[in-house]
Every structure is written in C-alpha cells, then in structure tokens.
Amino acid sequence: MNLHVRGTILPDGVTRDLWVLGDRITFERPRVESETVARGGFVLPGLVDVHTHPGAAEDGGFDGELFGEQVAAHREAGTALLRFPGLSGTVPDAVREAVGAPRMITAGRWLAWAGLSRKAEFHTVTEELAQAAAAEAVAHDGWCKIMGDWDFEAPPVPYDVMRAVVEAVHAVGGRVAAHCQSADGVLNAARAGIDSIEHGMGMPEESLGFMAANGAAYVPTLTAFAGSRAEVAARGTARSRVWLAGHDTMIRRVGEAHDAGVTVLAGTDSAPFGNVASEVGHLVAAGLPADVAVGAASWRAREFLGLPGIEEGGLADLTVYEADPRREPAVLAHPRRIVVRGQVVR
C-alpha cells in the first residue's frame, strides 16, 4: 500500500501533500489508492544520529544481539539514519537488511597509530595508519575512524601522519572521522583536513578556520559528556579538572563553530540509544540556534552524509510532529508518526 502524508515540510516550511511509493517520495499523486498516515503537523526527514556505537559489550567486544536491540531503540525514536564511527564487530546482515531498519553508514574499526601512548582493547593499532584507514573506507561505507589522540597530556598523532591519512583516504573517495580530545589533537586534525572531528574536548579556537575552509563537521556528542560530568567533578583530581575545563571549552565552541561556518552535527555516542533528541537540546543550550540544532539531527546531517531530504525521488524516511521542532525542539522526543524506508514504524 502506498502512503499519503500532508503536513508542513521542513526545513522549507511549506504545507503540501506527499506520497511514499516503496522507498521513495513523490509530490505527484499516484493513480493507485494510498493510505493517509498523517494529516497536519510538521514533517521532517527522518532523524539522524551521526555518532553512535550500538553493540558495544562491557568487555569491549561486540554483541550482535545487543546491536540489534539498540538499533531498534534508535528506530523507535524516529532515528532513520545512523553513522557508526568505529565498531568492534561486523554489522549483522539480518539487522542491516531488515524491513524498516534504519539506514547505516559504517566506518569500520577504531584505528590507532602505534605511537599513541595509551591503547584501549577495542582499538586496532597499526604502524601503517594511512594504508589501514584507506582500506577501512573502501571496505565499509566510505568512512574510516582514527584516534587523533587519547590522553589529554600525551602528544597526539603528529600532523604529518594525520595529513597522510587524509590524503590516502581522500584518494580512494573516502572520508575520515577523528576522535580528538586534546587541544593539540584537534588542531592537528583540523589542519590536516579531517572530515569530521568527534568530541573535540579542548578544541582551540584557531582550529575553526581550518574546519570551515575544509568543509569539516564538528560532532561534540554533548549528551555523553553531560552524563559523565557529575562523576568526573566528584573525583576532585588534577586530571578531572582538565576534563572539566575541556568540557567547558567544547560547549563554548559549539556556537562559535556555527558562527565560523562549521557544520555542527548531532551524535549521542553511547547509551541510552534512540536519544538524539537530547543531543539537540544540548546543542541549543550550548548556543546553537534551534532550527540549526534540529537540522543537525535531520536535514543538515543527511546533506553532509550525502543523502537527500524531503524532495522528489528522495528517500522515504519521515517523522511527523504535532508542533514545529524549530520552535519547540523538545517535541523531537515525541514523534506522532515515523516512516523508515517506506515502512510505518509508528
């Protein structure tokens, strides 16, 4: 059965009818009968979480069953597109190809340069970081994930190594996401032309100009950091004070990044899953205009990742809300109707 939706289409703000034919959108009324699944309200391209790690087991490994459960939580919240910047295992085909499953962009394993001073169990450590990064981008969905640094105090991956990674990945048509926490790590990644900087704790202001010039995105994952702040503050150690100062900096950089022309995107990082609406709230609190924050989890994120929004022939991912989320961002947590890949989820 074809689907019919009438509502105010965002971000354009025009009220009109659209139809879902399979996994595509059309504004031309089909000759066959269609089921009206939404009339009135505000219609967004399906939500996007650009930084999430479902399936991460407590031991640092990958749990395929848990992955399926957490992806389902994303879908039930209206999140129709997920980017995984680093997974410890392989996405189960049964989950990825299931009817109504969110679209998924993988980036392969977390790649760590052998020169980093500290390595986690889930990192894949290599001397040949550029070669490994290019291979991951080719093997997955055009993205790879590297660790730009690890500790706050230790030197990050050197600029020349980062630049070699960018050149190698771009040469095969891929893009690079970099985990960065320290100021030097962020600056090296920004200067090297990294495509997205994840977290960015301690981000120096001068990095914003490089990011804007290179078309890089900033994915601060504020939800995850906000959940850890009270625990870190209670420690009262020198290291915790560095963490807190870095957290303050990354919050301040959100609005400054937008003002500098950097694309800011919404990613939640970890549990609870299906919680990208909370990230939008944190982005607004950090100074991002509400409409920009909503776009960071919808149309702008899709554009950055190379997917269309609500347009003729576009993908059939829709969420419908009673109120305009550009004016009431909290409504994102309460979708009235969810369509993912042309299938009614709610």
Rank of each mutant, 00 (worst) to 15 (best):
L3Q: 10
I9P: 02
D12V: 15
D12T: 12
V14S: 12
T15G: 00
T15I: 09
F27E: 01
E28C: 08
E33T: 13
E35C: 07
A38Q: 02
F42K: 02
V43T: 01
P45V: 11
L47N: 01
V50C: 07
G55R: 04
E58D: 13
G60M: 11
G64P: 14
E65Y: 04
L66I: 02
G68S: 06
E69S: 09
E69V: 10
Q70T: 05
A72W: 10
A73W: 02
A80W: 14
L81D: 01
F84G: 01
G86E: 13
L87H: 08
G89S: 04
D93E: 13
A94P: 00
A94Q: 11
M104S: 02
T106H: 09
G108S: 07
W110L: 15
L116S: 05
L116M: 09
K119V: 15
F122Y: 15
Q131F: 07
E136D: 06
D141H: 15
C144Y: 15
D149S: 06
Y159M: 07
R175D: 03
V176H: 05
C180R: 05
D184L: 15
V186Q: 01
D195P: 10
H199Y: 12
G200F: 02
P204I: 00
E205F: 02
G209E: 15
A212V: 05
A213M: 14
N214A: 14
T223M: 12
A224G: 10
A226N: 14
R229N: 06
A230D: 14
R235W: 15
R235M: 13
R252F: 07
V254F: 05
G255E: 03
A257S: 14
G261K: 05
T263E: 10
S270K: 13
F273E: 08
F273N: 10
A277D: 05
S278A: 12
H282V: 00
A285R: 08
D291W: 14
A296H: 08
A297R: 06
L307D: 06
E312L: 11
A316K: 08
P325R: 07
R326L: 01
E328C: 06
A333P: 01
R336Y: 00
I338Y: 02
I338G: 00
V339S: 00
V340P: 01
V340H: 10
